[in-house]
């Protein structure tokens, strides 16, 4: 796990562990970056969708990504736009283009923002966030959080 331990998650906007979005994050919690892949036309997709936008097929499976990709674009946020990220400024959010062709919004945890470069090779890692049940009032969204650990896919320079 990145950073070798648990992060305090209270107040951070977290994904709701629901539906296909929840399934995506449960794969991350199991240490796998997986995307949907159409069983009929073979196309990979992210974000999760119920049917294949290319061929309308309902048949798909979660398949594990190689975890390798390149930095497609990024922005370095210097002025806080959300209280949960104020102390992190300046921080970079990064779009990674995976070998499978899909793109994923994430971050590169071992690279100072000023040294980021489009085209840089990256590999996936996982960042575990503390189960936020104790801070449920601070969570975003309307659903009860449950007790699940939430793990975000992040990246390191290859």
């Amino acid at each position: 796990m990145a950073d070798g331990g648990k992060k305090k998650a209270v107040g951070l906007p977290l994904p709701l562990m629901q539906g296909l979005h929840g399934e995506f994050y449960r794969h991350c919690a199991a240490g796998r970056l997986s995307f949907q892949r159409c069983s009929d036309c073979g196309r990979w997709r992210h974000v999760p969708r119920e049917i294949c936008p290319a061929c309308s097929s309902w048949n798909w499976s979660w398949e594990q990504s190689s975890g390798r990709g390149t930095v497609f674009t990024y922005t370095i946020t210097e002025r806080s736009m959300h209280p949960a990220f104020a102390e992190r400024c300046p921080y970079a959010v990064v779009v990674v283009e995976m070998e499978e062709g899909v793109r994923l919004l994430s971050r590169v945890v071992d690279c100072p923002p000023s040294e980021l470069e489009i085209g840089a090779g990256v590999t996936v890692d996982f960042l575990s966030l503390e189960s936020p049940a104790a801070g449920a009032d601070d969570r975003q969204g309307e659903q009860a959080p449950g007790q699940e650990e939430i793990v975000l896919p992040v990246f390191r320079l290859a």
Partner: peptide
């Protein structure tokens, strides 16, 4: 909510 905000992509300028 599920794929942008957790990484700090929260607003239109970003």
């Amino acid at each position: 909510r599920d794929f942008y905000l957790p990484h700090g992509l929260v607003a239109p300028p970003q």
